[in-house]
Design a protein around this nucleic acid. Structure first.
Length: 722
RNA sequence: GGGCGAUUAGCUCAGUUGGUAGAGCAACUCUUUUACACAGAGAAGGUCACAGGUUCGAGUCCUGUAUCGCCCACCA
């Protein structure tokens, strides 16, 4: 027996070497897998941020996917798991800008676009290996020969192609729209980068002709000409829709126009409001509805425009008090109340968001187009029907409800972003002319300065990673993918967009099943965050307890779609399990001989019952895994190995092995060996390192014949033992 | 405000066609017997949030209440 079994299992001495063996074997690439494999199984990895490091959330994702992929590979599927990294455009650019500001005191405008992009690429070069090395440390059996990066040449070209195709189909258009403008960062930001801060402000009640209007933002009110109330509000029954009213306002007399709209809340304030379409989302929609003019009051730096008269050029925060003073002097302030509300601020700069109207690019989700199968549909209908038909299924049913609710209410998607790092919009302008193409049409043409929302390219990910728009073998074999696995928090951003993009460009679903895992929280159920300092680094934990322990600790008790908790104690517990397996192997190796495996035996009743119990476990574990309930399968195999195999079968066998019945001894040895082999196979997807290490000892050092030869990684998943 | 969940042992959670309540940690008792003390044996611990209903039978299905959580939209 190998001397290494005389001491406890030592992960740090084995893991890196084992991973190297797997990688050198080439079996991560399905093209190299041995045997006849008629069916394929493919997953794309949700690409982690290229500049990031592994956290427990991504560790959980890698563990789940690797477990499924290893299981399918052992079952005989031609199994492909595609690795990749994401440019995380906004986050990465912000990070590099911050570094440059700190080191050189320069802004991106000082550097210029080409120089900033060069710096970003250089930064990514220095950071990208960190995350890739950490994925390897996890034991992830990813096919590195197919590695993709969202901004590499192949993917960039595919994104351009996709944009142009959708433009040609009439689904991409340019239009005005309110955006979240961050005056401090001089950029538009997406809804999910907004942080709402509770703030104590004043609610001003102002006399607006015969009405009293409540506002927390008097500085936006200069251009307000429309006064809106509910049509059923009896207090204002005397005023007719579109009635004109002369009244005195901040900078003199104006003509106001009454609008009756049922969207007004009669209960709030006085039930009357004026609207500022340029700087308020809801007001913008009202203005669109009634085709009202829109006027800009605040400029891109947060200062008042000439429409504010004497206040022009002032910052809004400074102007507010002065405007109120003036209104008060004119007797237009009715009263002032304290008011607590949520204010939108930019996550990165901390600046107050100022809604502004800008020209943006959109995807139209309600316009008809001709689908690949010749039928007419809209993106929104296609996205809804795909799920209602069952072409895509959610492993956890409640997410289907969420998805459908979201998809049915889908609005046009704003895909342009005012940053520099990303897939630049392939549109060129010269005067009033516009051309949609990748390369410059010639002299005097200037490219649109915006880049695409990162979710645009992400939506294409399942097929750009397989070589699209070329009609590659990979695309034919591996698309649609079998499964997407991610956190449920990106359902609307990513999962839905993949269904949209794949449906439009390929006429197929991107994946057949959607598996959402929950958030990983700390031992007390709190979110993992930098400010709490409660992050548990999976790689650190692996150094202490072994990656196998980290992996199985993450997935034990983790029902799909439900948040789970992880703490160091749990990981420590599963380190003990790894050692348990180690010692089971040691015991079996001490008792089994080569001939025990090669020759037939007559089994006792007890031996037969033990094999029956093993078979029952194989069936249960296989059934759970087929339903992607890897947590239940893990529980079953864990319980079997420790409390049935080790505590009962193995303990009982001691009596036989110490006895004198040689025939029974040989049969028992065969039984122990058979159960060990089968257990290792069932455990391998979960704890690939320790099981592979034991496997290699069984085949090499002990000289025992392995039915499957070579590596456990490609051994056949256990069938019921006859 | 709209939507979706959760509530089961001290803690974390399973419980898949309704059929005598389960696991892992933690705590308790005993045991150092060459696979493993990173262990074994044993005992303890629950009105399954609450109130109704359907049923021979409900943790499971239905209705309502309470508390907690998440997502979306945010009120001038």
């Amino acid at each position: 027996m190998d001397q290494k079994f005389l001491k406890p299992y030592s992960p740090d001495e084995t893991e890196a070497a084992i991973y190297k063996r797997w990688e050198n074997s080439g079996y991560f690439n399905p093209d190299n897998l041995p045997g006849d494999r008629p069916d394929t199984f493919s997953i794309v990895l949700p690409p982690p941020n290229v500049t990031g490091t592994l956290h427990m959330g991504s560790a959980l994702m890698l563990a789940i996917e690797d477990i499924i992929v290893r299981y399918k590979r052992m079952q005989g599927f031609k199994t492909l798991w595609i690795p990749g990294t994401d440019s995380a455009a906004i986050a990465t650019q912000a990070r590099v800008e911050k570094d440059i500001q700190k080191a050189e005191g320069k802004s991106r405008h000082d550097l210029g676009r080409p120089e900033l992009l060069k710096r970003i690429d250089a930064f990514i070069e220095t950071t990208k290996n960190t995350i890739i090395d950490q994925m390897r440390a996890m034991g992830a059996s990813l096919d590195w020969s197919r590695y993709a990066y969202t901004m590499d040449d192949k993917r960039y070209g595919a994104v351009m192609h996709a944009f142009i195709k959708m433009y040609e189909a009439g689904l991409i258009y340019r239009g005005h729209r309110i955006v979240n403008w961050d005056p401090k960062g001089q950029t538009t930001i997406s809804d999910d980068e907004i942080v709402y801060e509770e703030r104590k402000d004043k609610l001003y009640y102002l006399k607006y002709g015969p009405f009293i209007i409540g506002t927390s933002r008097p500085e936006t009110k200069f251009g307000d000409k429309y006064v809106v109330m509910h049509p059923d509000d009896k207090r204002y029954a005397q005023y007719a829709d579109r009635q004109q009213i002369e009244l005195e306002w901040i900078n003199g007399p104006i003509t106001a126009i009454v609008i009756k709209d049922p969207g007004v809340d009669m209960e709030f304030g006085t039930g009357v409001m004026t609207i500022t379409p340029w700087h308020d989302m809801a007001d913008f929609e009202l203005a669109e509805k009634y085709d009202l003019p829109k006027e800009q009051v605040i400029d891109w730096y947060g200062k008042l425009l000439p429409i504010a008269g004497e206040f022009a050029g002032m910052k809004i925060t400074d102007a507010r008090e002065k405007i109120i003073e003036k209104l008060a002097s004119k007797g237009l302030v009715e009263k002032i109340e304290d008011y607590t509300h949520n204010v939108a601020t930019a996550e990165r700069t901390g600046g107050m968001i100022e809604p502004q109207i800008k020209l943006q690019w959109f995807i139209n989700v309600t316009k008809e187009y001709t689908a690949k199968d010749g039928t007419k549909t809209t993106l929104r209908d296609m996205m809804t029907q795909t799920v209602e038909n069952g072409d895509v299924t959610f492993l956890v049913e409640r997410f289907e409800k969420q998805y459908l609710h979201w998809a049915k209410n889908l609005r046009d998607w704003c895909i342009s972003r005012q940053i520099w790092f990303g897939h630049r919009i392939p549109v060129w302008y010269r005067g009033n002319d516009m051309k949609v193409q990748v390369d410059s049409p010639g002299d005097g043409w200037e490219q649109d300065s915006d880049v695409l929302d990162t979710w645009f390219s992400a939506g294409l990910w399942t097929f750009t990673t397989l070589g699209w728009p070329d009609e590659t073998e990979d695309l034919k074999k591996y698309h649609p993918t079998a499964l997407i696995e991610s956190g449920y928090d990106i359902l609307p951003f990513w999962i839905a967009r993949m269904i949209m993009m794949s449906g439009f460009h390929l006429g197929t679903v991107p994946f057949k099943t959607i598996y959402f895992h929950g958030l990983v929280r700390d031992g007390q159920g709190r979110k993992i965050s930098k400010s709490l300092g409660n992050n548990i680094d999976p790689v650190d934990m692996a150094k202490k307890y072994g990656m196998d322990a980290v992996r199985i600790a993450l997935i034990m008790g983790m029902a799909p779609g439900t948040d789970s908790k992880i703490d160091e104690n749990k990981i420590r517990g599963y380190k003990n399990f790894a050692n348990k397996i180690w010692n089971i192997a040691r015991f079996v190796l001490e008792n089994v001989e080569k001939t025990d495996i090669e020759e037939p035996h007559t089994l006792s009743k007890e031996d037969a019952d033990d094999i029956t119990e093993l078979n029952r476990t194989v069936r249960e574990v296989t059934r759970h895994l087929d339903e992607y309930r890897i947590d239940l399968a893990a529980d079953a195999v864990y319980h079997y190995v420790w409390h049935t195999f080790a505590d009962q079968v193995l303990e009982r066998s001691k009596t036989v092995m110490n006895g004198t019945d040689v025939v029974a001894q040989r049969a028992t040895a065969w039984k122990l060996y058979t159960i060990l082999i089968t257990s290792l196979k069932m455990l391998h997807p979960y704890m690939p390192f320790v099981t592979e290490e034991i496997w290699s000892s069984l085949s090499a050092q002990a000289g025992l014949p392995m039915k499957d030869g070579g590596m456990l990684m490609i051994a056949r998943w256990p069938a019921v033992v006859e």
